[in-house]
Design a protein around this nucleic acid. Structure first.
Lengths: 350, 350
DNA sequence: ACGTGGCATGTAATCGTTTACAAGGGTTGA
DNA sequence: TCAACCCTTGTAAACGATTACATGCCACGT
């Protein structure tokens, strides 16, 4: 016959107390006399007891876990954000579950079952492309878990959020290229429906407009934030009759894919073309050449998102619905390295 | 007053049936008449009911989730493994929780609370440096969750496992360098206590020994698998009076850090030194120069680990203890690209 | 007409914790 | 001496789903 895990009853029996006392020892040690406490702790040790989280969650009506929805775990961009989240959350006694929402062949960006409101006490959403209905229509409003967005967001959903000003950051990046004397500037996009793609594209257009220029349609290269899509853009760039002297990629991964592909065709960066990225991944500074890019304070984004979520969770559901919705915009920084250089065809401007 | 989430009772009331029938509709739809089923589904819709996972887990005595313990989420190496795991597991109806075990200042590699045996039905461990006792001594043996190791492992723990033959793979990598005419070969280590470091170091020594060579102690550079540690090794390499003409790095990240740092000091690869990596990260093929490395079938590792875990979970605890412990060794491949080249000082051998 | 079996459904016990409430005992102050 | 209080502990009712068992009904074969 197969044993079952020791329960609080077993501990109570061994310690010679009631289950209530064992429970109290665990959660309010100060409400229990010192001798009893010692006996209970001893019994816990002897029996090898560990609390049954399912029972605890059921009774307490909260799970002690929050979930982070990440569009793509393979993107190292998210790692530091996650570590920021984990730091704040584990200090507050929460576990952090990470889930990849990468769309499968079948459906939209996935929405794992366990994000039903019963499974986690809160949600941090890093994916702006999640299905809006799935995200919102989970049971009656009073019981929907608090949610905060970070980095990406969904325009039609009004929730706390922490980001950088992507439009301004893109504009600054493009201004850097302009300052180097580039006038022919291309842009490599993220996925077309992505909010970040739109914001960064707008910023690019705005900076160009300021300089009396505009973004040529044939210099807007499609992409999806990934390495291979950057490489594909490079092929397009090579094939173009008339090529921009600088290219701004909406992500570091694409910038690296772009540079790598050019290298393999014998074209070197920044000699033949300046390339600017976005995100400042860990590898950007180590790349060949070191990548000029836009730095996002990723760890801080994670920290702040987590703190916001804790605040929201502390509110009771009724108040929450009417509470103000904080939106934090953190400063970005330009990290200028060696993948961008003065435009050789514009010596006079420098 | 604040409402609570609709429960199975609410659904039962609305549908005019008992809670048992609602439950059956959810889990054994065929055991319920067609008309009842329709009524229940309707009621579920109307009430916005979603099942309370805590209650379900408590009653069923299983959680429907498994956890993957990852040493470091920021390492893109793990992403494809995770996607393999997720694919198999979600098809089998399990959720996959991912947890980073990166050690904090305080303790050993962390062991999040929710991996207590009550919180997940099984464990896939990708971290060979977890504290042995924490991993094993979780309650009496009958209730410990099934566990499988992938990629890394812990020597003293006998559990199912899926890996590649790291020793042989490292030897093959070094043989590639030997074939290119290199005789002076250095090695950049992972963390000293890591099993992979040991295996790859052994393989390196073995291949060198075959060729009548040995690994010079001052050409064994310390590292910890990360980008910056590769860059540090490059600094050491540069400072060495007598330098190896080829360096084998125990991870791609280190290889890229190494190459990047050399580039910044004006040393180019493979002209001045051949560099070989290990893992074949997505970026390896896009790096400048494209990285020669050892390819691991990461996705398959994930798939197989997940299948193994499912098999173990299907066993009852008693049988499991005595069941054979499968160990799968998958084939690796050498991905030879451009960061390795013939030794210019050994023209005659090529 | 009746026994048998199968199907659909309901009843109620159970999973392991938490916690409101009650109870017992001791201390304190008037 | 007694009331008022505090401190510690126990009793027992939740939390919300699942499922063994019982029940009622209908159809069928003899």
């Amino acid at each position: 016959m197969t044993h079952r895990a020791p329960s609080i009853r077993d501990v109570a029996r061994v310690a010679g107390v009631s289950t209530a006392t064992v429970s109290r020892t665990l959660t309010h040690p100060d409400k229990v006399s010192e001798t009893t406490r010692a006996a209970v702790i001893r019994a816990i040790h002897d029996t090898g007891y560990t609390v049954n989280q399912a029972a605890r969650s059921l009774r307490r009506r909260r799970t002690g876990a929050i979930a982070v929805l990440v569009p793509n775990i393979s993107n190292p961009f998210f790692a530091r954000i996650l570590s920021g989240v984990a730091e704040v959350m584990s200090e507050a006694g929460y576990n952090v579950l990470i889930s990849d929402t990468t769309p499968t062949a079948l459906d939209d960006h996935r929405f794992p079952e366990y994000f039903s409101h019963n499974q986690t006490d809160g949600l941090i959403v890093l994916d702006g492309m999640l299905n809006r209905e799935l995200l919102l229509n989970r049971g009656p409003p009073e019981v929907r878990p608090p949610m905060v967005f970070a980095c990406e967001w969904i325009d039609s959903i009004e929730r706390p959020m922490v980001t950088i000003d992507n439009t301004a950051a893109a504009a600054a990046a493009v201004r850097h290229l302009l300052d180097l004397g580039h006038r022919d500037i291309g842009f490599v996009c993220g996925p077309p429906e992505n909010v970040l793609t739109r914001a960064r594209l707008n910023g690019t257009r705005a900076a160009l407009a300021e300089a009396g220029l505009s973004l040529r349609a044939d210099w807007i290269f499609p992409g999806d934030f990934t390495l291979p899509s950057g490489a594909r853009a490079a092929a397009l760039w090579l094939d173009a009759g008339d090529r921009p002297s600088a290219v701004f990629c909406a992500s570091d991964e694409m910038a690296m894919g772009f540079i790598g592909a050019l290298y393999q065709r014998g074209v070197s960066v920044p000699a033949s073309v300046s390339v600017m990225g976005f995100d400042d991944l860990g590898i950007a500074a180590h790349f060949v050449p070191p990548l000029s890019t836009v730095h996002q304070p990723r760890r801080r984004i994670g920290l702040i998102a987590a703190q916001m979520l804790l605040e929201r969770m502390a509110l009771d559901p009724a108040t929450r619905a009417s509470a103000p919705v904080p939106k934090v915009v953190l400063p970005y920084e330009l990290a200028i390295r060696s993948s961008t250089a003065p435009n050789p065809a514009a010596g006079e401007r420098i």
